[in-house]
Design a binder for these strands. Structure first.
Lengths: 228, 228
DNA sequence: CGATTGCTTGACCCCCATCAATCCTCGTGG
DNA sequence: CCACGAGGATTGATGGGGGTCAAGCAATCG
């Protein structure tokens, strides 16, 4: 099994603040998993008892609303860590994480992380900073959800996806998002999302080939996101 | 000036994890302020360089959206701490806090809090827990904003206010919220909020006397919040 | 190669944003 | 003490965004 000390992925998250010693201990008790596309990493209500470090792949993090519709809260990719919150607050997960493509993840059990949190202030501060940042983003999403139209939110989502995920040389973003997923990110009905996307396509702002897509006119999308 | 060691308010927040010694140091460098109704505690873009501990009063925490409308993210009351996030991420505030009534707050400068965060793991963990909890709530709000109708959200808001704020013996909640404030919590136009509130009133679910209000039928409001 | 799932488009209607007019309330100054 | 003005509260009218149902089409899979 690969070792945390040598893992490149840790550079992108709070684990980089752990000492070589600490990483060795973590490495010794971690487990690696392959999660197949469409399978859950964890589900609402699960006691996950640890954190996941994403070595490869992307997953959608969502929550069921009372009326039975699904809301995607965020997308998690290589280098991200997920599960810290339920660990810290010592509660079952209140979100569901489902793989969008085949994923490779490491699972670090709770006790080990807690130990590090207690002993290594640098690590703790880093986790704290991450969380503060996530919270700030969440506030922005709340404002957007409350104040912007579906069209604005969809345009903004497309831009954010381009910035966050890998883009090939020819500008193609290969996230395995279904139309329904788009709708669930923006918080609308699938049909509405489809209509708007095909409108964007007609106007030459985006291009679709199956689930792959490509952004052709960022400037115009930004205008739309701001309400024009 | 009153002393932190003897302040009852600290029992309700993370400061209770500080030792007597630490509290004395905090007390020595803190400043007390009175914020008049309607005045800002801080505004978007301010470098606040410390945290506020609310000794008395209530304030609304909001953010301007790009289209110039205001969204209230949360209400903060006696015992709460605010400002940790900008402190931790070392950025200007991205929210505005405005007093709903006359407030009494203590300001603790950044360096002092940072010192405690580095030295006292119990304190840090408590802040971390707080933040995890806030984040969970934020996720729920996102889902609500995205999936529920204005009517549902308004009903839910009324219930939450009842649970969070003091209620007199006769059931009256005295928050100095304007109709516009209600609208800005729910994320709708003032007129829409007014219409829905007066509908609730007609149906005997709530009662208003100026800005004071009273919830008469929680069960029915819960039904509405769930979509009936 | 059927069959199940996802995608697309059309039609309909309700919720809610917006504009406008009126009423109410309260603080201020004459 | 009252008049008055300003901002908040309320109600009406109107139009568009977007949710929902339905039907046809493409694609993926056993």
């Amino acid at each position: 099994m690969s070792k945390c000390e040598q893992c490149i992925v840790k550079q992108f998250n709070s684990l980089k603040h752990l000492s070589r010693e600490e990483l060795k201990r973590v490495s010794a008790c971690k487990t690696s998993k392959i999660i197949k596309k469409g399978k859950p990493l964890f589900e609402e209500g699960d006691r996950i008892n640890g954190v996941f470090c994403i070595k490869d792949g992307v997953c959608k993090v969502s929550k069921m609303s009372e009326n039975g519709r699904n809301q995607i809260i965020s997308l998690i990719k290589k280098g991200d860590i997920i599960g810290e919150r339920s660990l810290i607050s010592d509660e079952p997960a209140n979100l569901t994480a489902i793989a969008l493509d085949d994923m490779e993840v490491c699972f670090i059990p709770k006790e080990e992380i807690i130990k590090d949190l207690e002993k290594n202030p640098g690590f703790t501060m880093s986790v704290l900073k991450d969380m503060a940042n996530t919270l700030k983003k969440a506030d922005n999403v709340i404002v957007d959800m409350a104040q912007k139209t579906v069209k604005q939110r969809l345009a903004e989502t497309l831009i954010r996806l381009k910035d966050k995920f890998d883009v090939t040389d020819d500008g193609i973003i290969n996230l395995q998002l279904s139309r329904e997923d788009f709708a669930n990110i923006v918080g609308t009905a699938t049909e509405s999302a489809i209509r708007l996307l095909s409108d964007f396509k007609k106007r030459g702002l985006v291009e679709f080939k199956g689930k792959e897509f490509k952004i052709l006119d960022t400037k115009s999308l930004e205008k739309i996101a701001q309400g024009f």
